[in-house]
Design a protein around this nucleic acid. Structure first.
Length: 585
DNA sequence: GCCGTTTTCGGCCCGACTGTTTTCAGTCG
């Protein structure tokens, strides 16, 4: 079961409790646990494997033990008991926006909806005008239901951060063309740099909200203005993505920005803290003894609450509030700390079985210089084993080494006298038995090796761990690339015993990679946090197969920040002088 | 059910919006 499915199950339990009139806070607790799991970037199953389910804020002993049964037996009798006696169809209706527990229950019951195809049965009833006859419903709610059903049907997967980022940046550029816009920022998951975004929200500071909103709704990519009020607007773009804009005058902008950046759990914790002082927090400011205090920026807002400003990437209620109160937030890594990229693929013909890059080495070197790097490591995939003898494989690599030497000797021409170190690396497949898909004799011709799993993903944890540790065992092997193998919105990662892997890496100078490819962002932030805690050094690489991908480093840095990483945790923040030292031992 | 540097008991976030209502319940973020 994946996180989405588990969240759905917990929401069903919450809904059942609500209909049965159970304790309000129990209901909230299940909802909260559902959100925690839905938004976790680690699979709950993996956390369970590592006995860390309760590390998710909102998942305590009781829910964890129910989930334990779920993972072991595939069902939870306790949950089934709670849902007993309720129409099973109601839990399907919860998927429709606008339908909560009460509505789902009433509709399922009154319309005698059968499970399996509940939503389409509801749709038919609405189309036949049967909803408006039910007490508490009317023509409007019937129409709303139909719209909700439509929306549920076309609801897109979450957007990759990079996609949402580019979309939002274009709108921001456009909005800056309106003079009354004093400031404009991302909001929500986009501002927190979550690996995937649900939608796009933007905030504008302005004294003339009408002008800003009019400008927004006139954006050329807008297909439809869904809602437009005095201070907010919602539009549907031609590509069917929804964008919300919220405005506030500059003097009160800080609270708006803070409130809609979230996360929800972070905000709830802040309000709990405020509440203990008899204060009240909202998107308008802080209310103390009936008086509303406004804040122009977030810094003063957090300061008033007695804590340091918290970087948006950390706002998940996972310890950042306590740290901010003690002024002990980590000094997070920044894009400008990165001194090189150790995993890029040029178009050098290594005759690999995986994707080869599309850009010549020279171009990538120029790009690296432009990015201000001190070093660049080419690590193309190993030549395919099936198509080559060992000697041929080694010869191919030797040729690549020669090519690099040739480029190095013509440094000045490419680099205009700016020095950059070029490394000869190789990304080697880890075969199912843990062997390298490249002859060991050939290791002499590389500066370092990247190893990665590209096959047999379904192996059990134990064997997968042994396989990986074996592949890491050679001193030339430095980097474990995209360590979990996850593909966001597509594929869950494979299973590994992380404690063992991290322990080995720390003791033997190996660096799990934070792969910056937007569909990977792997390691995930929860693993990064774990690695940081365990003193494991990591490396952030773009794994570029084309020139423009070299600019994706920022996404890797973002996920590292979400994992509480400082420059000291990331080896490619080191100068070449220092890195070359640890590359050798 | 969750959670803890005021607590292992006794609390548990805030506001907007909407539709169907005569004062509020349900849903959402």
């Amino acid at each position: 079961m994946n996180n989405r499915e588990i969240a759905k199950l917990l929401r069903a339990v919450s809904a059942a409790y609500e209909i049965k009139g159970k304790n309000r806070f129990k209901i909230i607790a299940y909802d909260r646990a559902a959100s925690a799991i839905e938004h976790s970037t680690s699979e709950a199953k993996d956390l369970w494997d590592d006995n860390k389910l309760t590390s998710l804020a909102g998942v305590g002993f009781s829910i964890a033990s129910h989930l334990d049964k779920l993972f072991k037996k595939g069902r939870v009798l306790h949950f089934e008991k709670i849902m007993k006696g309720l129409p099973p169809a109601m839990f399907e209706l919860l998927e429709v926006p606008g339908i909560g527990p009460k509505t789902a229950f009433t509709l399922s019951q009154k319309l005698k909806i059968k499970p399996g195809t509940a939503i389409s049965q509801l749709k038919r009833a609405a189309q036949e005008g049967k909803i408006r006859e039910i007490e508490g419903f009317g023509k409007e709610s019937e129409k709303d239901l139909l719209e909700g059903i439509d929306e549920a049907g076309r609801r897109e997967e979450r957007l990759l951060l990079s996609f949402a980022d580019n979309l939002a940046k274009k709108i921001i550029e456009y909005m800056k063309g309106e003079k009354s816009v004093k400031r404009i920022d991302f909001l929500g998951s986009l501002r927190r740099r979550v690996a995937t975004a649900g939608d796009i929200d933007l905030a504008v500071a302005t004294d003339q909200p009408k002008k800003a909103i009019d400008h927004f709704t006139r954006y050329s990519e807008v297909k439809e203005v869904v809602a437009k009020g005095a201070n907010t607007a919602r539009v549907l773009l031609k590509n069917n993505y929804q964008v919300d804009l919220k405005t506030q005058k500059p003097a009160a902008y800080g609270a708006l920005l803070q409130h809609f950046t979230g996360s929800k759990q972070h905000n709830i914790r802040l309000r709990e803290i405020a509440r203990k002082k008899n204060w009240s927090l909202s998107e308008y400011g802080i209310k103390i003894k009936g008086k509303l205090y406004q804040f122009g920026d977030e810094e003063s807002f957090y300061k008033k609450l007695g804590m340091a400003w918290i970087p948006p990437e950390l706002r998940e209620d996972s310890g950042e509030i306590e740290a901010a109160e003690k002024n002990k937030l980590p000094k997070l890594i920044k894009p400008e700390n990165i001194k090189g990229d150790l995993h890029v693929h040029s178009d050098f013909p290594l005759e690999a079985s995986h994707d080869e890059g599309t850009t010549p080495m020279r171009k990538m070197i120029e790009k690296a210089i432009e990015l201000g790097y001190e070093y660049l490591g080419f690590s193309e995939h190993n030549p395919s084993q099936s198509q080559h003898t060992e000697k041929q494989m080694i010869d191919l690599l030797k040729r690549k080494k020669e090519e690099i030497e040739k480029i190095k000797s013509s440094y000045n021409k490419i680099t205009q006298k700016k020095k950059i170190e070029i490394l000869n690396g190789l990304e080697v497949d880890i075969r199912p038995n843990g062997d390298w898909a490249f002859p060991r004799k050939g290791f002499d011709f590389v500066d370092y090796l990247v190893v990665s799993i590209h096959s047999n993903f379904k192996m059990d944890r134990n064997r997968m761990t042994e396989r990986t540790l074996k592949a890491l065992s050679h001193p030339k092997v430095k980097i474990l690339s995209h360590p979990t193998g996850r593909l966001l919105t597509k594929r869950e990662g494979y299973e590994l015993e992380w404690e063992k892997i991290f322990d080995f890496c720390r003791k033997n100078n190996k660096w799990p990679e934070i792969n910056a490819q937007p569909e990977r962002l792997d390691l995930p932030e929860t693993m990064i946090k774990e690695a940081v805690k365990n003193g494991v050094k990591m490396v952030i690489n773009t794994d570029s197969h084309a020139l423009d991908q070299m600019e994706m480093m920022g996404y890797g840095v973002a996920v590292a920040r979400r994992g509480w990483a400082s420059p000291a945790n990331i080896v490619n923040t080191l100068s070449w002088e220092k890195l070359s030292g640890i590359l050798k031992n």
